[in-house]
Computed example of a mutant assay.
Amino acid sequence: MDTPDISRTRLREEDWLAAAYDVLTASGVEAVKVMPLAKRLGVSRTSFYWHFKDREELLEAMVRRWEDKNTGNLVARTEAYAESIAEALFNLFDCWIDPELFDARLDLAVRNWARTDTALQARLDAADIRREQAMTGMFLRFGYEQQDALVRAKAMIYTQIGYISMQVTESKRYRISLMPGYIEVFSGKPPATRDLDRFLARHR
């Protein structure tokens, strides 16, 4: 009779995903392998197969997490209730402050990974289109013309991708201090005091 792997009772699927995330964001997708992950977690390789069929299934789970977290949350923030374009943009800017809403390290890792994976590149392209459409729609709701809305959305997307690819390091306080200026740049009008106050209140 086989002895059960006691590591199965200690480790969850989430533990494997967390370990894979750490390796992916630090060293790239080529370093995400079952045996090194098992050693990192201090268990036998057998434990992995209680949760995933193979490495490809683990990688797929990570991609789905990226799609749900980064693109899903970003789209949701563009659709959140807002009384003005400034408030709508502040809702979106929550993503740039709260890593629980948007994980910049994961976004960079996926973009780097997609350079050598055509199937993933297609999913990344689809995600970028979805983000662009969501941001464009946000401007359209507040009366911007289609072309104007699209250009403003693209400006925001390219700015954020620049932040991510350059791995810009700023304190939360400093980044927040810049955001009223970004609101004016992206929308063409400064935020009202009440919009800024509501934004600052939830990030104190």
Rank of each mutant, 00 (worst) to 15 (best):
A20L: 04
Y21H: 12
D22T: 09
V23D: 02
V23Y: 01
V23H: 03
L24I: 04
A26F: 06
S27D: 13
A31G: 06
V32T: 02
K33V: 05
R40I: 06
R40C: 07
G42W: 06
V43Q: 07
S44M: 10
S44Q: 12
R45E: 15
F48N: 00
W50D: 08
H51G: 05
E56T: 09
E57G: 08
L58W: 01
L59K: 05
A61D: 08
A61W: 04
A61H: 07
M62C: 05
M62F: 05
M62P: 01
R64M: 11
R65G: 08
R65E: 11
W66R: 02
N70A: 07
N73L: 08
L74H: 07
E79H: 08
E79K: 11
E79W: 03
A80C: 10
Y81C: 12
E83G: 15
S84R: 10
I85H: 00
A88R: 01
F90I: 04
W96C: 09
P99R: 09
F102T: 00
F102E: 01
F102D: 00
D103M: 07
A104V: 15
A104S: 14
R105N: 09
L106D: 04
L108P: 01
V110H: 01
V110E: 00
R111D: 09
T118E: 13
T118Y: 14
A119F: 12
A119D: 11
L120K: 02
A122G: 14
A122I: 08
R123G: 08
L124W: 02
A126S: 12
R131F: 09
T136L: 06
G137F: 02
M138T: 03
M138P: 00
F139E: 00
R141Q: 15
F142P: 00
G143E: 08
A149F: 04
L150V: 15
K154I: 14
Y158A: 10
Y158E: 15
T159A: 15
Q160A: 14
Y163C: 10
I164E: 03
I164W: 04
I164D: 02
I164L: 06
